[in-house]
C-alpha cells in the first residue's frame, strides 16, 4: 500500500473531527414547552411515545439551529429547482373516475359505496384527559 497523503489535489483543508462539528456553537436553547409539544401532537396526530421521542425533537431543533450560522441576506428562498419552468396545463377532459370498486377495495371499512369514519370530528381530548406521554410533564 502506498503511503496515504492528501495528494496535490486536496490542499490541507483541515476540518475539526466529527463530534465537535455537529454540536452547535450556539448557546444551549430553551426546551420546547409542553404546550408546544401538545400542540404538535394535535396538529400531527402523532404522539411522542416516550421521553426519547421528545429528546429526538429537541435534538432535531438544536441541529437545525445551525442554519442560523449562514448569512442569507438578499437570498431568495428556493421552492424547487424547477422554479424557472412553467406549469403544465391539462385540457378540461374527463379522463378518470368511475372506479368506485377499485377505490373501496383498499378501504378496511366501508358502508355501501361510502368510506366510513367514526362519528364527527371530535377533537382529541385535552392533555389532562388523554393517555399521552406528555401528561407527566
Amino acid at each position: 500500500m502506498r503511503a496515504l497523503s492528501l495528494g496535490r489535489w486536496l490542499r490541507a483543508w483541515r476540518v475539526p473531527p466529527l463530534p465537535e462539528r455537529w454540536h452547535s456553537t450556539l448557546p444551549p436553547q430553551q426546551k420546547v414547552s409542553v404546550e408546544v409539544l401538545d400542540h404538535l401532537e394535535h396538529l400531527a396526530l402523532v404522539d411522542f411515545r416516550d421521553s426519547e421521542g421528545v429528546e429526538r425533537l429537541q435534538k432535531a431543533i438544536q441541529f437545525a439551529d445551525q442554519l442560523h450560522e449562514v448569512n442569507t441576506d438578499g437570498v431568495e428562498p428556493m421552492d424547487s429547482v424547477l422554479e424557472d419552468r412553467c406549469l403544465y396545463l391539462r385540457e378540461d377532459d374527463v379522463t378518470e373516475g368511475n372506479c368506485t370498486k377499485e377505490l373501496l377495495e383498499n378501504a378496511r371499512e366501508k358502508v355501501e359505496e361510502y368510506f366510513v369514519a367514526p362519528p364527527g370530528n371530535i377533537p382529541l381530548p385535552k392533555l389532562e384527559e388523554r393517555d399521552s406521554f406528555l401528561q407527566g410533564s
Binding site: 396526530l45 404522539d47 369514519a117 367514526p118 364527527g120 370530528n121 371530535i122 382529541l124
Partner: peptide, 12 residues
C-alpha cells in the same frame, strides 16, 4: 371514538 382518535391510533 372519533375521527381524530382513529387517525392518531392508526398513525401510531
Amino acid at each position: 371514538e372519533s375521527t381524530e382518535s382513529m387517525y392518531a391510533a392508526t398513525r401510531r
